[in-house]
Design a protein around this nucleic acid. Structure first.
Lengths: 216, 216, 216, 216
DNA sequence: TATGAATGAGGGTTCATTCAT
DNA sequence: TATGAATGAACCCTCATTCAT
């Protein structure tokens, strides 16, 4: 009596979902590396190991493929954010954890940074066309609001902090350093990506953000 | 004494220079709007009102044109930074002035942001090829170092602050907000570019940065 | 005694036939609308509401599908011609009836006109490959020959009229007006398809043809 | 003292007008042979012996190239019509001349027929987009109106003939025979294009048209 | 019988770039 | 200095068709 007989060949093609997500991953890498304008459909197909025509079969055209990549990227970071469980930490630890998470996520998924840059170069029109992303309002902002309130109540945080401003600042401190790492390294003549430099940056970021939220 | 002759050598040179800077400005706008991959030589010629062939005459190819645009952009912001005269202000005022300047410059010259994004997408290879830019180390970092030292000495600033980290943080707080304004506005469902929102951001940035540098 | 079993052979055959004629109708419309070169197999499947693969199953390829459409079209007009029963009318009435029929058929089945145009663009090679159509020599020409002979004998028609020439002329008078209706309307700046214009055309055609066949 | 020195090399390229008309002629042949949908830009370039890119340089895209071909075709036949000088002939001779001209023009320029078919397949949208053609109302209709009036006055023609109807009929008698020659030949099993058959057709057409216009 | 998945060849079009003057 | 003409390579996308079930 055998279960698990269905998939037949292990290395089967003809798996719609698998093909789609393979394409999506390949497209994400290509878009991240070359931007929307510089990305090549040919290369995406090659990266995916699939026929180019299949991309159009599933994603219609380059624009909508890019949109699908963005949706996927947002879905991913939102999932990770949700998994943070900041509510279980003390306000101070929660903020520190958030700074660390942001830093680590950008480090691990550098594609995210360039994808966002591309999305903004095109004035976020791909987001506007995506009902999904528009409604995927970051739960983090709500979470952050609650943490700030908790901190204010227990006397550790100052009052009057806008969670959106804080969220943007945390992201900005990490984003700029990593996204502009190449020009900055060139101009300052020092490699900003050595382990030491990276630790110093994270430490600096925590100082800046905690220095801001903590009551004197 | 002849008037209305064939243009004198000097005049022709002036035309040549003017053509070059017209092309450069057109290219800057085009690159800023569409990125390096999305920019079109045709459109640049059209924007400049000059023959496309002339672009190649002066700038050899697209890559080197982009490089020239970057060089010009850095030259411009460096000039503006130098004009700041932060040394005449008190440390606190100097830092505040720097935050304000950064914010205003990015607001006035949004092309700068997307140009930098493009430069970084291409791993700053255009900068590496430009001896000029490589040597154009921001005078601000030195200036900032002196201010931090002055502040530390007069007891208003804490010690141990890396001017590069601080510079990057100031830039990052402004950059991320403005460069990613489209996606952020879409996701948070609020227009981040209204005058009110912009004032709030500047105020927040000053709080964050001054909260960090000032001794408790 | 089981009801609701797998479909009986007969039923399946009926479905098969229905599928084929559905495809054929969809193909006819598509070919008529876009020509052979402009027709799309995808659209034909969509119009038919059937899977594209099925078209290949029944008709092998686009060329043979077009051929099948042509065969069907000829079969249809031949059937209608045969139903005319011109032999029961007086020679004059028979000719008038034929002119009217031709006009009405082209009006009701405008696809026929563009299908013929396509067939001719391809030098009738689809007809040459179709034994069926080649042998489907228009019964009308024979019928018309008899009518002309009857008319000549009873003194109402002039002699020496080639039925093929006459048939071609009748068709041509209607065909050109309707098939080229769009360019003619554009050029003469008058809508040739209003009811009034159509009636005038039919009347004119009868005058021309009867003026030709009738003895002075 | 030499005139005619300018053109430099006899077989010069870099002649904009020459290139354009070469492309136009190649496109006319390709469109006539394969229809709009079946025509290939590659083949047009090859026929013209010019780079494909040049077609886009001068004609923007396939649609507008087709439009330019149509405009040229209409310009050509209108010129030829104008050169007919029917007003110098007797009414009867003028009508006969017109029938002959139409027949001969279609015989000499069979592309014209298929081009018109293509234009009509696309509902003359290329004509509607061409101000030039829309205004290029056939001078023949006016000419024909005058002839009919002259004939009526001198008692040779019947009255009440619409010149547009007559024009369409003359064209239709020739057009259908020639344009549908392939299917007709296949169906009637006789070659309609032998010299004898062609003469018989022309003779028949004259009989039909003159039989219609001449007073009994 | 019927269908979703997959593909190779090629279609129109665009691009950066060079030629010739 | 300045420009219109010309080009080869490549790009996005489409098409008829086949595979596998």
């Amino acid at each position: 009596m055998h279960t698990e007989q269905a998939p037949a060949t292990e290395e089967r093609q003809r798996d719609a979902e698998r093909s789609q997500s393979t394409i999506l991953a390949a497209a994400r890498d290509e878009f991240a590396e070359h931007g929307l304008g510089g990305a090549r459909m040919d290369r995406i197909a090659e990266r995916a190991g699939l026929n180019k025509r299949l991309i159009y079969y599933y994603f219609a055209d380059k624009e909508r493929l890019f949109q699908a990549v963005l949706e996927q990227a947002y879905r991913d970071i939102r999932d990770r954010e949700r998994a943070l469980k900041l509510q279980d930490l003390s306000p101070t630890e929660a903020v520190r954890r958030l700074v660390e998470f942001t830093w680590q996520y950008y480090l691990e998924c550098p594609e995210f940074l360039t994808l966002l840059n591309s999305a903004n170069l095109h004035r976020a029109r791909h987001l506007h066309q995506s009902a999904e992303v528009r409604e995927m309002n970051s739960p983090l902002v709500d979470m952050l609001g609650e943490i700030l309130e908790r901190g204010r109540k227990d006397g550790s945080f100052r009052g009057g902090i806008d969670p959106v401003q804080l969220y943007v600042s945390i992201a900005g401190l990490a984003y700029f350093y990593l996204s502009n790492n190449h020009t900055l390294s060139a101009i300052f003549g020092r490699d900003l990506m050595t382990p030491k430099a990276r630790n110093e940056r994270l430490s600096h970021m925590c100082d800046v953000i905690l220095g801001y939220v903590l009551r004197d």
